[in-house]
Structure formats: structure tokens, C-alpha cells
Write a protein that binds this DNA or RNA. Structure first.
Lengths: 360, 360
DNA sequence: GTCTATTTTTGAATCGATCCAAGTTCAGCG
DNA sequence: CGCTGAACTTGGATCGATTCAAAAATAGAC
């Protein structure tokens, strides 16, 4: 029966019920958005008409255009969407962002895309009031794309220098110094570094030249911090192998192969991410090397998983959730200025680091 | 210099550059959305004008209104936003949803809210093409609110019977049967059940009356499954303590206190969630009871963490990511029909279950 | 130089609401 | 009975784009 009237889809809009109720669309609008200013009798009539016609309530699309504000912040990355739920670092960050959004009632829109073209489109068409950018990879492209939108945005883990963008990060030099100092103080003198990318194009042992011309300043800063602390203990840093990975399993393992194939294998590994550190622990275990008895490892990031692995990882902990919280607030309370924050890090000593083996 | 012209914020719109370039809005619009149909000379002129005036590109707000489609799906829950990133079950589900969204290029909007009123508003005003509802708690309210929007939606973990809503779930009875059968077959005869809520108002040992009048049919179904399998082994299910919790630490621990305070303590625990099962393992360890030597435990859900805890948890695994994927597809390929899917579950035997102690 | 076919461009209509200045209604008062 | 002010309503303008039928410009043929 009903279907005979319905037939095809007919989106009922405010104007329809206004007409049905015999009032202007202005009044009909008020019934929904400011009911108190409409006389009760009229209000009831309009509501009844809405009910009868199956009106779904003011369509946010229309409201949005008028109001201008979406009340949601976009979080973008070049990784696939599942990155936000799979990666421990991202998850912790998102928890911080969530907290700030919950507090103000803002929503979160996740933006990502497989290929470059889709990413551009998704960023251009995302319905948000601002962006938080996860710049883990392809950060400069992401920043470039987002800048076009002319909306407030803040970069996280920004890998390169650009004073015109708001960014929140940590003191990489100080953090790295902490990690290297800790190991050197324990007595280690033979080190190897598992590095994040210095630029986009390759992996492998890095030359001083590559370090000098690094695109990703975060990577360079961490290395500088490591070397600063090591030099202070008399370590010849030119002899320390630095293997550049892509922070994934394959390249990290390749790095470990290379490092331990050398004549003098290290007693301590400085990993620029917990991810690599944990892969290293696993790799060493598989080769029968004990952590920390044979080799000590210190990570970087302080993801929750690092406390749970075996042995629990000594690492340089970033205040990840706090970074997320501040990033969200930067967008939520945007005031038109470029905001740059550098937060402190903390060395969390757990069981993956200890004195070097006696025989060494 | 520049600032003297800019002064205050002036949102440049398409009409502005059209005027500046001396073309109609129609043509200006085409330059951006279908550049191939406008003559090169004109296209360049318009683009130059856009560049000169600092135009950010067609505003999605305007486009949206015209196009009608947002190209994003909303995921809603009554929990705070961080639930999506903290809870292992939710995370796995979101990974599945992400996958389906990535495949079609759709975005994800997270919707949630502290209080009831905000939730209603957030659902009413979310810019999405459809909803996926996490009905873990307050599911009926969530469904009610969402129905108002008259958008496609699908419920997950729907706790109650309602044939008018699309939902994706698992065969709770069969899953529970698997769990109980496994334990009974190992020789256990003294059981206790850690149950999810039967209704919203209380926790504690449940009466047959409460089971019969259960609001949450999922809970009831799992219990039915447990009891069916146990009966087949001659266990008097009326003697099996069933403790209703809120699936959190406090109430689960209270349940364990109660259960183990009884004269005949159980040798096996059937937990309706991995969460409770893992809390139980911890609680038992703290009391010096060994799992599975003194007490066996079987969980329900199959979250990734269950494989990592100590001892690894035997559990009834739901195809969580697959549920997420199907939910997303239900919205993405919405055809106007009510879709109900019930997926199978699988018993994953790990180290938390074994034969009962000899002395028992 | 005219006519037809094709390529471009135009401008009004539309999407679905909210806002607001101006107009209407009505009770109370002198 | 007219006047005043408060309480409601109205209808046009606006938000920022896209669409499409019709008009205009251009090209090609004869």
C-alpha cells in the first residue's frame, strides 16, 4: 500500500513540509533549530507534517553550507587507512587526538589513499575544518597538497625543515643523546645504528655525504644526537656503521645481516624506532644471540608494545598521546598563527640494555 | 605590503575568480571539474586568476550540496572516540572496515559522544552516506537515533532482536557450544560462567528468571550454547554459577571473588569475552592459581591480544575483520534492503585450557 | 558569402538549509 | 478606537558550487 505512494525515492526537504504545514520555510527551519521562538500551535503542526511526510530532520549538507563549520578534524596520511588502527605509534597518537576531540565534541575524519591521485582528491574534498598530518612518509607531498586547501593544519613527525608550517615534534637530538649516553655509560664501545630514511631513494649503509645532504632532518638529528654522546665517550663515530632502512621488516633484517657480517660486530644497537628495535630483538633471538647479554638495544618512540615485548625494550619515549592532544588543540583553537612545539623525551630503561659481554 | 590588501579574511569563491577572469561561473566551474571541455586559452586565464587571488579550489561544501554524496561512512558508538583505537576488538573491526573503504576510496568519519544529547546531535549532523553502529552498549538507543537519519546503516554486535535493521553478527549459540564442549571433553565438570550483561541495570549472580527475560539476546544465546553442550555431558547447569559483569575489570574481578568464594570452586571458566578471560588469567595468577593446571579458561571473540597473553588464550574466534569488511560493503553497496548476515566462529585452542587437576 | 556542424560559453536553476530585516498579529493601555 | 511594544512570521538573500539547455562563436563545405 504505502509503496504505491512512495514509488521511487523522494527526499523530503524542509521546504516540502513548510508547504504542507502552510508556513514559510523560515518558520519551518526555526521549528527545528530554535523551537522556542515558534508558537506552540504552529510548532506542533509543522512537526506533525514532518512526521507524516517522513522528514529526516534538517539535512546537514544544507546546514553545513550555511554555517561553514563542519565540526570535524581530518587526520591524513599517505599510508592506507588501516595504518591508524594497526600501527602502535599511530594508535597512541590517535588516542590523544580523540581525547581532545571528545572534550570539544568534534568528530574525526580519517583521510588516506592508495595512490597519489586519490590522495590529492581525498584531501581536496574532505569535509573538515582542519588537518592533522602524519608525515611518516611522503610528508612533503602531503604538506603541499594540504596547503592548497588553505585550511589550518599541523604536521606531526615532520621530517624536513619548513618554518611556514605548524608542527609538533620532539627534541630528536636530545633523545638520541640520551639513548647513546645510556649505552656508552654501560660500557659499550662497539655500536651500530639502524636509521630511518635520510631521503626517499635508497637503503643500505650510509656515507657521511648522505648524512650531510639528508632530506629528513629528523633522521639526521637523531644521528647527530647519537654521535655527540658517543664522541664524548671517545668512540670514533666514523667507524660506526649506520644502516638506513625503510622502517619495515625486510630492510631492517637486511641491515642486521650487513651489520653482523662485519669483522667486529657491535655489542649495542641504536635503533631509531621501536619497530626496528623489536624486529632486531626477534632477529637476534633467531640467531641465538641474547638480548641484552650479547647485544644491547635501545629503541626510539616509546610505543606501548615496547613494554610488552621480550625482553621489554629500553627506549626513548616520546609523549605520543600528548603530541596528539596538542595537535588536535592546535586545529581546534586555531588562531591563524604558525605554531611550533618541540616536546621533551625521556629515556625509559627496561631489560633490553645492559653491560657489554665480558669477552668483548 | 600584501597584508594591506588582505586586511581581514576574505574567502575567495568560484564566482570571484569567474568575474576576475571575465567568464561565467559555469565556465569557471568547468575549469576545475572538467578542464578538458574548456578552451586552453580560457582555462589558463581562469587558472591564472585563481592563482592570483589565492583561490583554494572548489570548496567541498558547495560541491557536496549539489552532488549529494559525501563519500564517507560514519562509524558510531556510545563509547568515547578513543575506544576505536584502544579496544582490541574495535581495532580489528576497524581494520576490516578500513580495508573495504580503502578499496573504494571512501573515507571514515568517527562519531561518538560523551553524553546522550551530544550523541544525538553528532549522529544527526554527521556528514556521511551511511552508518556502521558499534552496539556494544546502549545499542537500542543508537539504532533509534540513527534510524531518524533515514540513511543506510548496519548494526554490529546487535544485542537485541529487531528484524527491521541490517546487522552482521556471529552464531553465538554455536560458538558457545564449541567452548563448553571443548572444556567438558577435557574432563571438566565444575564450571563457572563470566557473562556479559543480560540487561542494563545490574551485575552479580544471575537467576534463571533474569536469563529468561534477557534484553541482550547475544548474551542469552551464548549462555544457551554453553548450557546445551554442558548438559550433553551430564553437567547440571542449574548448579553452574553465572556471574553477570559489565565486561570491565572491576565487575569481572568481583565476579571471580564470588565464584571462588563458593564451597566448590570451578575447574573451568567460560568467559563471554576475551577481555574478561584475560582479566581472569591475571586475577588467578595473582592468587597463585595456575592456568590451565588449576583452572582452565576459554574466552570469546578472538582478539589479537588473546594470542599474546600468558598463557595464550583458548577462545572462540569471531571473524572480526571480515565482519568489518562486510559491514562496510553493506553500506557502500547499499541496495535498500535489510541485510542480515550471521557468520561462523571457530574454536582456537591455545594454552589456557587443559585437563582438570587430578585432585578435583 | 552563406549555411551547417561543431566546439565553447553562458546564465538561470538547483542542491537544502539558515539568517535577518521587514511585515504581521495581537494583547494591553489610555 | 488608535497606539505601542512584544511575539511571531515571512520571504528574499545567502552559503558555494554543479548542471544543462540554449546561445554564441568558430570551422568547414560549397
Amino acid at each position: 500500500m504505502a509503496s504505491s505512494t512512495e514509488g521511487n525515492r523522494r527526499p523530503v526537504r524542509l521546504a516540502d513540509i513548510a508547504r504542507a504545514a502552510g508556513v514559510s520555510h523560515g518558520t519551518a527551519s526555526n521549528v527545528f533549530s530554535r523551537p522556542e521562538i515558534v508558537r506552540e500551535e504552529v510548532r506542533e503542526r509543522v512537526k506533525a507534517a514532518a512526521e507524516a511526510m517522513g522528514y529526516a530532520g534538517p539535512d546537514p549538507k544544507g546546514r553545513l553550507l550555511r554555517a561553514g563549520k563542519v565540526n570535524a578534524i581530518g587526520v591524513a596520511t599517505t599510508e592506507p587507512l588501516s595504518y591508524f588502527f594497526d600501527d602502535p605509534f599511530a594508535r597512541t597518537m590517535m588516542a590523544g587526538i580523540s581525547e581532545a576531540c571528545d572534550a570539544t565534541g568534534a568528530g574525526i575524519a580519517l583521510v588516506s589513499a592508495g595512490n597519489e591521485e586519490k590522495l590529492a582528491w581525498n584531501i581536496q574534498s574532505a569535509l573538515v575544518d582542519g588537518f592533522i598530518l602524519f608525515c611518516i612518509e611522503g610528508g612533503s607531498r602531503l604538506v603541499e597538497l594540504t596547503r592548497e586547501r588553505k585550511l589550518p593544519f599541523v604536521a606531526l613527525e615532520l621530517g624536513f625543515d619548513d618554518d611556514t608550517v605548524s608542527a609538533i615534534g620532539v627534541d630528536n637530538v636530545a633523545g638520541a643523546r640520551l639513548a647513546a649516553h645510556h649505552l656508552a655509560e654501560l660500557g659499550h664501545r662497539r655500536f651500530a645504528v639502524l636509521a630511518l630514511p635520510f631521503a626517499d631513494d635508497s637503503t643500505g649503509l650510509v656515507s657521511p655525504e648522505r648524512i650531510r645532504t639528508a632530506v629528513y632532518t629528523g633522521t639526521r638529528d637523531r644521528l647527530v644526537g647519537y654521535f655527540e654522546a658517543l664522541s664524548r665517550f671517545g668512540v670514533d663515530t666514523t667507524k660506526v656503521p649506520v644502516y638506513e632502512t625503510e622502517n619495515d621488516e625486510a630492510s631492517t633484517k637486511a641491515g642486521l645481516e650487513t651489520i653482523f657480517a662485519a669483522a667486529e660486530s657491535p655489542t649495542a644497537i641504536l635503533a631509531m624506532s621501536d619497530r626496528m628495535a623489536m624486529i632486531a630483538i626477534e632477529w637476534l633471538a633467531a640467531r641465538g644471540m641474547a638480548v641484552p647479554d650479547d647485544v644491547s638495544i635501545v629503541g626510539f618512540d616509546g610505543v606501548p608494545d615496547a613494554a610488552l615485548c621480550d625482553p621489554p625494550l629500553t627506549t626513548v619515549a616520546q609523549p605520543i598521546a600528548e603530541i596528539g592532544r596538542r595537535a588536535a588543540r592546535t586545529i581546534l583553537d586555531f588562531d591563524g598563527t604558525v605554531r611550533r612545539e618541540t616536546l621533551g623525551v625521556e629515556l625509559v630503561v627496561r631489560a633490553s640494555s645492559g653491560p657489554p659481554p665480558e669477552t668483548a
